[in-house]
Design a protein around this nucleic acid. Structure first.
Length: 170
DNA sequence: AAACGGCAAAATG
DNA sequence: CATTTTGCCGTTT
C-alpha cells in the first residue's frame, strides 16, 4: 500500500519535529518526542531525491513561521492520499481557516455539508497527519472551550496563543 | 455489528 | 451555573 517514506528532522525552538515524505510530497509531521533519542535515520544529504530536498526546505520554513504565529508563504505539496474522502474534505476546510481565526467543530461539519457529523469532524481533526501546517488547532468547541488535541493540549494552547487567539475558557 | 472518539443540545439538579 | 443523558456519525476492530 504505502511505499517507503523519507523522514527528516526539523529543529525548532520548540523541539525537533519529524517530517515524513512520500513520493508525492509531505505526508506527515510528528511532534517532538519528550526526551526520546530516536533515529533521524536521515539519509546523507546528497542521496536525497531532489524534490524531497526542496519540499523539506519549504516545510522547515513553513513550520518555523507557523510556530512563530506568522503566516506561511509557501508550502510544499501535501500527500493526503492516506485519508478517507470525508477526512480529506475536513482537512481541506481546516486549511481555509486563516491565521488568527477559528471555527467550531459544528461549523466545520456544516462547511463539509455534513452538519450532523460534528463528532466525526473531531475524529477527522485528530487524524490530521500534518498538524500545525494543516491547522487543526484552530477548531474549538461551540461553547467556547478549547476541545481536545491529540498531541496534547499544551500544543493547542501554545499555537493559539502565538496566533493571538483569545483563550476563552481553559 | 459494536465500540470509540478532539462534539453538541437537551435534560437535570 | 455544573453535570449527566441522549443523539449523531465516520472510523476502526
Amino acid at each position: 500500500m504505502n511505499a517507503k517514506r523519507i523522514v527528516l528532522p526539523i529543529p525548532t525552538g520548540a523541539g525537533v519535529f519529524l517530517a515524513h515524505y512520500s513520493a508525492r510530497g509531505l505526508a506527515g509531521l510528528e511532534f517532538p518526542r519528550g526526551n526520546q533519542l530516536h533515529r533521524p535515520s536521515v539519509a546523507p544529504r546528497r542521496s536525497l531525491p531532489l524534490p524531497v530536498r526542496r519540499w523539506h526546505r519549504l516545510a522547515v520554513q513553513a513550520l518555523r513561521r507557523a510556530l512563530a504565529g506568522k503566516a506561511m508563504v509557501d508550502l510544499s505539496p501535501l500527500d493526503l492520499s492516506a485519508g478517507t474522502l470525508f477526512q480529506k474534505r475536513v482537512w481541506g476546510a481546516l486549511r481555509r481557516i486563516s491565521l488568527g481565526k477559528t471555527m467550531t467543530y459544528a461549523q466545520v461539519a456544516t462547511a463539509v455539508w455534513k452538519p450532523k457529523a460534528v463528532r466525526a469532524v473531531g475524529s477527522a481533526c485528530g487524524a490530521n497527519p500534518i498538524p500545525i501546517l494543516i491547522p487543526c488547532h484552530r477548531v474549538l468547541r461551540t461553547n467556547g472551550q478549547l476541545g481536545g488535541f491529540t498531541a496534547g493540549m499544551k500544543w493547542k494552547r501554545l499555537l493559539l496563543e502565538r496566533e493571538g487567539v483569545r483563550a476563552s475558557v481553559g
